[in-house]
Amino acid sequence: MCIARFIVTLLTLFLAFAAGAGQEALLNRLQVDHEALIAAQRDYQRQREQGTLGAAETADYADYLARLRERVSQDCLMLDRADIRLRLLDESPCPASLSGVVKPTTIDQRSEQTSAERTATMDAELNAGLGEFDEMLLREQERVKAAAPRSEAGGSGGAGSGQGEGDGGAEGGQTGDAGESGDVTGSGDQPVSRGVGDRPPSGAAGGRGTQTGARGRPADIPDGSDDDLVARQMREAAEKEKNPELKKKLWEEYRKYKQGAR
């Protein structure tokens, strides 16, 4: 009888240990995936700004980021389902309502979630979908640029692309509050880019959604005293562009416009 009790105790301890190890493994996995995602995003952004990525490499990289993002989202959902909270992580990649104190209960938390928690879970799902959609569009935009006729690709294109990563909205506390017109940032659930090729971005033409940045113009560009409204806007866009490649292309667009206007 005593031996039986000893065996039951051992089994209970083993199961508890195994469950704890499983939780730890899930948290570790989330942490590793999240760190990998942050590092990859930074590297990707840096390489894009330096213009060291080709069209195919950019598409591959974007694909890789999307997969990482999906893993993080899945990790968050698994943790949520297992009712494991994220206090162990310094910087939680999951929505805020998922973090908190671990509840020492074994009942089905999913059915016991408050409406705020359910909303947060669905927001995370929505933001993950937005992130994936952004990545899909980014890949498509790279494809568009790669398929552009040679003369077109050489003379223009690229304005407005590559702003932000749109990391699927898995940031803690982010609940799908993106998309304010004109707010072009590099993280959160903002769209990955605005505008393809030489088109001014949707919702940004004529003054909507402008950015700020360093000035500077090539030597052959006149002072702009005879600019009409459109030329002035093109000039301002070129002056404000930080990415040297894009800046060059915007000036090229300005030159073409000025030639056409004469």
Binding site: F133, L137, V144, V196
Partner: peptide, 23 residues
């Protein structure tokens, strides 16, 4: 705000389509 986030994607989608049309 959620709907507007999706609307921004809708604009991006149309931008991307216009890239194809431009080509």
């Amino acid at each position: 705000r959620r709907v507007n986030a999706i609307r921004e994607r809708d604009f991006l989608l149309i931008d991307t389509l216009n890239g194809h049309f431009d080509n």
